[in-house]
């Protein structure tokens, strides 16, 4: 929470497709160089995670994750509205029996 009684200019994007895990990312910029849409720019601070400059343009192909040398450094996340639902099949059958 922001406790310093200040707030800042900003606007949350409609999607946050690429999440960098700072403790794992080595800032090698392989994701920057593989992305065919060119969403990213390298971080001005060397060794830090790239900046996702154009999140709305993401095509969700996952090549940034496929190219990343560190397991778990990048998470690709579909926008909330595109997250698919699944259920346990046994529960469907149980629900029917309870009816």
């Amino acid at each position: 929470m922001n406790n310093d009684k200040k707030c800042y200019l900003g606007e949350m994007p409609s999607a946050n497709p690429i999440i960098y895990h700072k403790e794992k990312c080595i800032g090698c910029n392989r994701c920057v160089n593989i992305c065919q849409v060119d969403l990213f720019i390298p971080n001005p601070e060397k060794g830090k995670p790239p900046i996702v400059l154009y999140p709305g343009e993401c095509w969700y192909c996952g090549c940034c994750v496929m190219e990343c040398p560190i397991e778990g450094a990048i998470t690709l996340r579909h926008p909330l509205m595109n997250q698919v639902h699944w259920v346990e099949k046994d529960k469907l059958i149980k629900n029917k029996e309870e009816k």
Partner: peptide, 25 residues
């Protein structure tokens, strides 16, 4: 298949999807 290795296969698996147990809407 294109766009499935990470966003579907990996992500669903990580979120607990089990093809022997779950059905997808």
């Amino acid at each position: 298949e294109g766009k499935t290795k990470v966003p579907i296969y990996k992500n669903y698996k990580d979120a607990g999807f089990d093809p022997e147990k779950h059905v997808i809407q």
